[in-house]
Design a protein around this nucleic acid. Structure first.
Length: 446
DNA sequence: CATCCACCGGAAGCCGGGGAAA
DNA sequence: TTTCCCCGGCTTCCGGTGGATG
């Protein structure tokens, strides 16, 4: 959950001095029935929509019977790492595919099961899962592996600071492995987020046994949603460490529908309108078949219904949830871009509203609209050259489609720009990130 | 054909902020 | 803490582009 900004407006007619005006919300004697949180003391009625909202929170590894449509992928991964159950060397695996196609899910689930099988067969094995978008340097990765594998009761003192990545390996990791583990699987998620020469750590891990660093069997599963990176990595890695690589394809609408239905029991019986799940599946299947977004959207629709104290989750709530999901996506893309860039986007969104989707605008026109917007909010405006740069940035980010245009009237090569997202969505996103633009919007109306 | 238009996009350099180094 | 340096946003400058024009 993210933080929600709540604004309070002062009530002018209110005097704080005299009288003992108490809280509007009188506290109940029993905190278990505090109406402020919708409690009634019985644990009932806390929520008329959700029974178990946790089923719709991404990040936990679900039971095997909630995994849908990835049987082949699971078997493929299992075939590569199964040797660890016998205490033998697992193969390395590289997985790539679009976001939300079950890469992390399958890797974690299969690895976990392999480790359990190994343990029950008497092999000491463990799995380490690392998200490289936060653990993004060689040293951090090495440190995470060491501390994750270090048993609680180990009589080994590991320095937390001042240790280089190679030292972590030399001084600690190999020793820990030799002492406690016959096999380890290391999952490196979003491996493309590792900084520059990250393949060194891949190399070190994957060749450890051949180099005689340890007797333990190490299997690496590298995950990336950057197809390009995945290709380069897998060809390079394949030759040097013989890793198998797999592509996870997006979920179909049917699979998405099945995934969502498996999580239907997050809701109370009967509150979820029948059309909701198929609609989400349909919408998300068109947009890259992203299961994460699908589940998020279902949860959001439920939350919107819940906040409204509605008795059912309806298509209306869903439409709002979809809009919110799209807005969130754009917000994520544009946060971190310069303020003037957002004003440029604002200008383009304003121009695009009500126009044909195919309509494109030359840089000059956007610049003019941008200038008035910048003046309206009292921001110092940038040159046309910079506006062009901002538009090209957004093109790279996938918010704007920017193409070269040859042979206009009395014009050489020029560029035309159009939004790749719904203008209303972009407008909402920009307005959310830029308070001045929000004032402008709410002031003028449309 | 040469010229012109109106923009593209690379290069160089300025500036301020932030983080590392001293 | 101060100092230094790097980076990203921005500007200015300028050669490039390619159909229209006469």
């Amino acid at each position: 959950m993210g933080w929600v900004t709540i604004m309070y407006y002062e009530d002018n007619g209110c005097s704080m001095t005299d009288g003992g005006t108490q809280d509007e919300f009188t506290r109940p004697d029993d905190p278990a029935s505090d109406p402020l949180f919708g409690l009634d003391g019985e644990g009932e009625g806390l929520d008329n929509i959700f029974r178990n909202r946790g089923l719709l929170v991404i990040g936990e590894v679900p039971d095997r019977d909630r995994i849908v449509g990835r049987d082949e992928e699971m078997q493929n991964v299992a075939n590569q790492i199964k040797y660890i159950t016998q205490g033998q060397k697992p193969n390395h695996v590289i997985i790539y595919g679009e976001p939300g196609t079950g890469k992390s899910l399958v890797s974690r689930h299969v690895s976990q099961r392999a480790i359990e099988s190994a343990k029950s067969l008497g092999t000491d094995a463990e799995v380490v899962y690392i998200e490289c978008n936060t653990v993004d340097t060689k040293t951090r990765v090495a440190r995470r592996i060491v501390f994750d594998l270090l048993p609680e009761d180990a009589d080994m003192n590991v320095n937390k600071r001042g240790v280089g990545w190679a030292e972590y390996f030399e001084n600690y990791l190999w020793k820990i492995l030799d002492r406690y583990y016959e096999g380890v699987i290391v999952i490196l998620d979003e491996i493309d987020r590792l900084q520059d020469d990250n393949n060194k750590i891949l190399h070190e891990l994957s060749r450890a046994r051949e180099k005689g660093s340890t007797d333990s069997q190490i299997g690496v599963i590298g995950i990336t949603n950057n197809i390009q990176y995945g290709r380069e990595l897998s060809s390079e890695v394949k030759s040097s460490m013989r890793a198998e690589d797999y592509v996870f394809h997006p979920y179909s609408a049917d699979e998405l529908e099945a995934i969502l239905k498996k999580r239907k029991d997050a809701f109370n019986a009967g509150v979820l309108d029948d059309e909701v799940i198929p609609k989400i599946a349909e919408v998300c299947a068109v947009d890259k078949g992203d299961a994460r977004t699908a589940v998020d959207t279902l949860r959001n629709a439920g939350e919107i219904a819940s906040n409204r104290s509605a008795s059912n989750v309806t298509l209306e709530h869903l439409d709002e949830a979809i809009h919110r999901a799209k807005t969130d996506k754009v917000v994520r893309l544009i946060e971190g871009t310069p303020r003037n860039g957002k004003v440029v986007l604002y200008a383009l969104a304003k121009m695009s509203r009500g126009k044909d989707v195919e309509d494109k605008f030359p840089t000059g026109e956007i610049f003019d609209r941008y200038e008035t917007a910048a003046r309206d909010i009292g921001a110092d405006n940038v040159s046309e050259r910079t506006v062009l740069d901002r538009l090209l940035d957004y093109d790279y980010l996938g918010v704007v489609d920017s193409v070269k245009d040859h042979g206009g009237f009395k014009k050489g090569t020029r560029r035309l720009h159009a939004l790749r997202k719904d203008p209303d969505v972009v407008l909402d996103a920009v307005v959310r990130k830029e308070p001045k633009l929000r004032e402008l919007e709410s002031g003028i109306g449309k």
